[in-house]
């Protein structure tokens, strides 16, 4: 069973994603801030990470850079999720190394299909934006 790490500082957001993804058959690990996200990513080796960009105690970007600097996680699918909608945000995220980029409110159908394609292609997907 594939395991997905959900990192978001809002409990309701985490519950939403957990509900959707558990129905898809994934096991869920939760993290409530950047520091916890980093710890759990290293300790639990998830197959995919959903990373909110605006978190306390380490931003999504910081977590990404830390993870990517480790060769074990260089190809790990990490999807950025953010409520920000400023021009250039998507390009910046993809350029920094995120595998995908979703804006809140997230279209559930899109979330499902993106995760599905990233995890069934055996982690070899390129940037799979919105």
């Amino acid at each position: 069973m594939k395991r997905i790490l959900i990192a978001d500082d809002r409990a309701t957001s985490r519950e939403l994603l957990r509900t959707v993804l558990e129905r898809q058959g994934y096991a869920i690990i939760e993290a409530a801030d950047g520091e916890e996200a980093l710890q759990k990513a290293r300790a639990e080796a998830p197959d995919l990470i959903l990373l909110d960009l605006q978190m306390p105690r380490r931003t999504g970007y910081e977590v990404l850079l830390e993870l990517r600097s480790d060769p074990r996680h260089a190809a790990l699918p990490i999807i950025a999720i953010t409520a920000s909608a400023m021009q250039g945000d998507r390009e910046r995220a993809l350029a920094a190394g995120f595998t995908g980029y979703l804006t809140k409110p997230v279209a559930l159908a899109q979330l499902r299909s993106q995760i599905h394609s990233l995890l069934t292609d055996g982690n070899s997907a390129g940037p799979g934006g919105n």
Binding site: T12, Q54, S84
Partner: peptide, 27 residues
Amino acid sequence: LASMSHELRTPLHTIIGFSELLTEQLE
């Protein structure tokens, strides 16, 4: 504007998300 838009969209994410889940009647 940037922070306002961000703040306003965040709760909408769960409002819309949970509403969609309810209509799917899987719960």
